[in-house]
């Protein structure tokens, strides 16, 4: 049901939604951003476990990334990206995509956890090392908040709600990411995101950071009521105007009119 929308969204949205009124979009809150169309998963349970990764890779990845991960016109090389990058892209559902997109969006993962680890192993066999999948422990949220403000808030927003970058790219909201995915993104730097290797952030600091990011998604941080998508002052201003026009001016009109007696 989402697939046809996904194809038309990039073309339709600028025209239609802007005409309808961009303010309305603010009121609606974060609408689902266009997810990439998902290719049909191929259940082939008969394959032996060892070759599972290789087979999935050939079916789903090789057309863009090349048979040995050397890359092509359609997709970058996978040699040396590291298990963390592969696991991040697959477990967040950003890969595979059926056609070239400028920025793959988060969605339900296409592969099961076993298939993902098989694929991770297979891509690792292309060689080149790269960051391992981090093991995340629970950390200190105070230090995590500090690190988040210094390194992550500029793009993802201090409230973790995400923000726009140039050329139609955006830094996504962080509320759906698991702790491992957050740590992977920090180490790998998917897309336009800078990577934060060990000499910039230690493992302990990454643990602190992920603990804080995980906490950001909880409603406990919104004791003041509906957070309005954590979109900031303009969403608040819109609500204030709605309240003034719908509640207060209507009240004034009711009071100022003669009662029909």
């Amino acid at each position: 049901m989402r697939r046809p929308r996904a194809v038309t969204l990039p073309a339709l949205y600028p025209r239609r939604a802007l005409v309808v009124g961009s303010v309305l979009a603010l009121a609606l809150g974060p609408v689902a951003l266009a997810p990439a169309p998902d290719p049909t998963p191929t259940p082939s349970a008969t394959t032996p476990a060892g070759d599972r990764g290789a087979q999935l890779y050939l079916e789903q990845c090789a057309s863009c990334h090349g048979v040995r991960g050397q890359g092509s016109q359609q997709g970058p090389s996978l040699v040396g990206v590291g298990p963390a990058a592969v696991d991040f892209q697959l477990s967040t559902g950003r890969m595979p995509v059926s056609r070239e997109v400028s920025q793959a969006r988060r969605r339900e993962p296409v592969f099961s956890a076993d298939d993902i680890s098989a694929l991770v192993d297979h891509v690792a066999s292309f060689g080149g090392g790269g960051p391992r999948i981090p093991r995340v422990a629970s950390g200190d949220v105070v230090s995590g908040r500090d690190l988040f403000a210094a390194n992550c808030a500029p793009c993802h927003g201090a409230a973790g709600s995400g923000a726009v970058l140039t050329n139609g790219w955006s830094a996504p909201p962080l509320y759906d990411a698991s702790a491992t995915q957050v740590a992977e993104a920090v180490r790998v730097g998917p897309g336009l995101m800078p990577a934060f290797p060990g000499q910039v952030l230690t493992d302990q600091q990454v643990d602190d950071l992920t603990s804080y990011v995980r906490r950001l998604r909880t409603e406990r941080l919104d004791p003041g009521g509906n957070p309005l998508g954590r979109l900031g002052p303009l969403a608040e201003g819109l609500l204030a105007w709605l309240a003034v026009l719908v509640l207060l001016v209507a009240g004034v009109r009711w009071l100022g009119r003669r009662a029909a007696e």
Partner: peptide, 29 residues
């Protein structure tokens, strides 16, 4: 409004530091 709609959650924004920024950044309407 004060009870049901959260406004200006400064604890999420964090304290001001000259070298830090947050996005999106808007003032009140």
């Amino acid at each position: 409004l004060g009870g049901l709609a959260q406004i200006n959650p400064v604890w999420l924004y964090g304290p001001f530091e000259p070298a830090q920024s947050t996005s999106p950044a808007q003032p009140d309407w």
